[in-house]
Amino acid sequence: MASLQQQQPANLKSDEEERKRKRMISNRESARRSRAKKQQQLDELLGEITRLQNDNSAIVKKIDGATQMFVGVESQNNVLRAQLTELTDRLHSLNCVLHIAQEVSGMAMDIPEIPDTLLEPWKLPSSVQPITTSFNMNMF
């Protein structure tokens, strides 16, 4: 009987040690899976960062292109406004000369008045469709 009692604690100890060993193996495997899952999440996030950075670069390039186009169109508009002002002034001067010639000669002339739209270009109607012609800046 004494040997039976001695064997039982040894068996219990052995069973307990086996459970601890299995639990330790299970914990290690669980930790390995957890690390692998975290690494996969990290890799996915790094991939998303790369994709978002590429998207951001593409958007910045589009914004830069649109900004350059805007600056170009704004520059052309400024040139056209200056030309409109110059041509309107010339037309006004020519009309003055025609009025003087009409008074001096006594002949009736049909002198068109300068349209208000030329005097106030911001009131000119704008076209709905974009203008796609090229404009030679050295034309005048």
Results as ranks from 00 to 15, higher is better:
Leu124Tyr: 11
Gln129His: 05
Trp122Val: 06
Pro121Phe: 00
Ile100Ser: 13
Ala66Lys: 10
Leu52Met: 12
Glu17Phe: 15
Arg23Glu: 02
Met137Ile: 12
Ala108Gly: 10
Gly72Asn: 11
Ser127Gly: 00
Ser126Pro: 03
Gln40Pro: 05
Pro9Leu: 11
Thr117Tyr: 15
Ser30Met: 09
Leu45Val: 13
Glu44Met: 08
Leu91Gly: 04
Thr67Ala: 06
Glu86Ala: 03
Ile59Met: 14
Asp64Thr: 03
Arg21Asn: 04
Asn136Lys: 11
Pro130Ala: 03
Phe140Glu: 15
Asp43Pro: 00
Gln53His: 14
Pro125Met: 00
Pro130Gly: 02
Ile131His: 04
Ile49Tyr: 11
Arg33Ser: 11
Ser14Gly: 13
Ile59Lys: 08
Ser57Pro: 04
Ser34Glu: 10
Leu42Phe: 11
Ile131Trp: 06
Trp122Arg: 08
Glu86Trp: 02
Leu80His: 06
Trp122Cys: 01
Asn95Asp: 06
Val73Asn: 04
Gln7Ile: 09
Cys96Phe: 08
Met69Val: 11
Ala36Gln: 15
Lys38Phe: 08
Asp15Ile: 10
Glu103Gly: 06
Asn136Ile: 02
Ser3Trp: 01
Asn136Asp: 08
Gln7Phe: 06
Ile114Ser: 02
Trp122His: 12
Ala108Lys: 04
Val60Lys: 12
Gly106Thr: 10
Glu29Arg: 05
Thr67Gln: 12
Gln129Tyr: 05
Leu45Tyr: 12
His99Val: 09
Ser3Arg: 11
Pro125Glu: 05
Pro121Ile: 04
Thr88Asn: 04
Lys123His: 10
Arg51Lys: 10
Ser134Glu: 15
Arg33Glu: 10
Val79Pro: 07
Ser75Pro: 02
Thr117Asn: 14
Ile63Thr: 05
Arg28Phe: 09
Ser14Cys: 09
Glu16Asn: 14
Gln76Lys: 04
Gln7Val: 14
Asn95Tyr: 06
Leu46Met: 07
Ile111Phe: 00
Ser14Glu: 13
Leu94Trp: 04
Lys123Thr: 09
Val73Gly: 00
Thr117Lys: 10
Glu120Met: 14
Glu48Asn: 12
Leu119Ala: 01
Glu16His: 10
